[in-house]
Amino acid sequence: MSTRRRAREIVLQLLYEADVNDPRSDESAKQFIRSRLQGRKALTEFAYKLLMGTLEHRNEVDAHLSKLASHWTLPRMAVTDRNVLRLGGYEILFGDTPGRVAVNEAIVLAKRYGDKNSPRFVNGVLDRLYKELEAKQAKS
């Protein structure tokens, strides 16, 4: 497993936790990430940046996802799917990760942690988001 993929898994755990409970403190989150990534500094920073960015831009990402998830509202989605979409959406809209990579990484997370329909659902929503952003950038 790629180390960045492992970092995304840890961020997904924290996003899931923040979705169903009160989010932990920034320091506690960073400590959790550091312990799971065995103190690897660059990876810890990558994961922490993903977590904080996703949480900070959650409303904006949710607005995009709500428009693109045909016949689904965010509260109706499985918690895992919703947070995989948020993470992937953040990476596409605000992150440094190439859009295609963000979509593929989200699909891998959906396969691993979602149900049998999750990968297809995540792929459909994030692919639409990526193509929408790509078209918008091509016009400017």
Rank of each mutant, 00 (worst) to 15 (best):
residue 106 A to M: 02
residue 132 E to C: 06
residue 36 R to D: 11
residue 104 N to C: 08
residue 48 Y to L: 01
residue 106 A to Q: 02
residue 71 H to M: 10
residue 18 A to T: 07
residue 118 S to R: 01
residue 93 L to H: 02
residue 86 R to F: 06
residue 16 Y to R: 12
residue 43 L to I: 04
residue 124 G to V: 05
residue 61 V to C: 03
residue 22 D to A: 13
residue 118 S to E: 09
residue 82 R to T: 08
residue 131 K to V: 08
residue 100 R to T: 12
residue 88 G to P: 01
residue 63 A to M: 15
residue 62 D to F: 06
residue 43 L to E: 10
residue 58 R to A: 15
residue 90 Y to L: 01
residue 38 Q to N: 12
residue 64 H to T: 06
residue 81 D to Q: 11
residue 116 K to Q: 06
residue 24 R to A: 03
residue 96 D to Y: 07
residue 53 G to N: 04
residue 131 K to D: 08
residue 46 F to E: 04
residue 114 G to T: 07
residue 130 Y to E: 11
residue 93 L to K: 03
residue 87 L to H: 05
residue 109 L to E: 02
residue 91 E to T: 14
residue 50 L to N: 07
residue 111 K to R: 10
residue 91 E to Y: 07
residue 104 N to A: 11
residue 29 A to Q: 07
residue 112 R to P: 05
residue 119 P to Q: 15
residue 37 L to G: 00
residue 52 M to C: 07
residue 47 A to T: 02
residue 46 F to G: 03
residue 101 V to S: 08
residue 68 L to Q: 06
residue 41 K to D: 12
residue 84 V to T: 11
residue 79 V to N: 15
residue 60 E to F: 06
residue 28 S to E: 15
residue 112 R to N: 13
residue 33 I to C: 08
residue 22 D to H: 08
residue 31 Q to M: 10
residue 76 R to C: 15
residue 78 A to V: 03
residue 53 G to C: 09
residue 134 E to K: 12
residue 75 P to E: 12
residue 57 H to P: 04
residue 65 L to A: 11
residue 118 S to G: 09
residue 56 E to H: 13
residue 52 M to Q: 14
residue 42 A to F: 06
residue 56 E to R: 03
